[in-house]
Amino acid sequence: MNAEFATTFPQFTRLDPESAQILTAAARVVTLPAGTAIFHDGSACANYVLVIDGSVRVQKVAENGREIVLYRVESGQSCVLTTNCLISHGDYAAEGIAETNVKALILPAMAFRTLLARSEQFRDFVFSAYAARISDLLLLIEEVAFGRIDVRLAAWLLHHSAGDGNIKSTHQDLATELGTAREVISRQLKEFERRHWVTLHRGRVEVINRDGLGSLRDSV
């Protein structure tokens, strides 16, 4: 087993010898440059993907062009949509894009299903990751359906601003992250700027009053 992979996924060092052999023989490590489309909405799933390093953004794009980020797959994680497709023999219902250069371990579908059937340790990893991500998605649905966009935007800005308070994101980037329209984000940012909580720049938002944003975030 690849040493870097074993360090990132120590759960697999506890596989029984035969399962470990299946994993080692079938898996391969790949490197994907930033911007690579790893899978497309509607495409078939041929591999189980485990991210060793980097970040994959999984997003849904509506027919009108609106986008929402569902989640990210980062070091030590797997993709719940991939798991779902492999188990159900279905197609992807969203797309995955490499946000950074990504190093990943690719396990063909046949080997994935073999290990799922024979290895309790492998099953525990797969379904624990699946359950955790489903919880995240349910929280996202709740936030999008019931959460106030001004509160959600304030919380997002606070979470992602560090050091000098600068966030390199366009209004469209923020709209995609929060599952709303760019015009809604632009209007809300203008209101935050009017309150002297942020300063808007081209392609960048500068947080200048964390207490103000915090008071809004904590108001509900």
Rank of each mutant, 00 (worst) to 15 (best):
A3Q: 15
F5V: 06
F9P: 04
F12K: 03
L15S: 03
A20F: 04
A26C: 10
V29M: 09
L32D: 01
L32P: 00
A37N: 14
I38T: 06
F39K: 04
H40A: 14
D41K: 12
S43A: 13
A44Q: 14
L50F: 12
V51K: 00
V51C: 03
V51A: 02
V56N: 00
V58L: 03
N64Q: 09
L70D: 00
V73P: 01
Q77I: 01
S78L: 02
V80F: 06
L81T: 01
T82H: 06
T83E: 04
H89Q: 15
D91Y: 10
Y92T: 04
A93G: 14
I97Y: 09
N101T: 15
V102Y: 05
A104K: 01
L105T: 01
L105I: 05
A111S: 12
A111Y: 07
F112V: 01
Q121W: 00
F122N: 00
F122Y: 08
F122W: 03
V126C: 04
F127A: 02
F127H: 08
A131H: 15
A132C: 15
R133N: 12
I141R: 15
E142G: 12
R148S: 11
V151I: 15
A155F: 04
W156P: 05
L157V: 10
L158D: 06
L158M: 11
G163A: 13
H171W: 05
L174V: 05
E177P: 05
L178S: 01
Q188D: 08
Q188R: 15
V198S: 01
R204S: 11
I208L: 07
I208V: 15
R217Y: 08
S219N: 10
V220L: 13
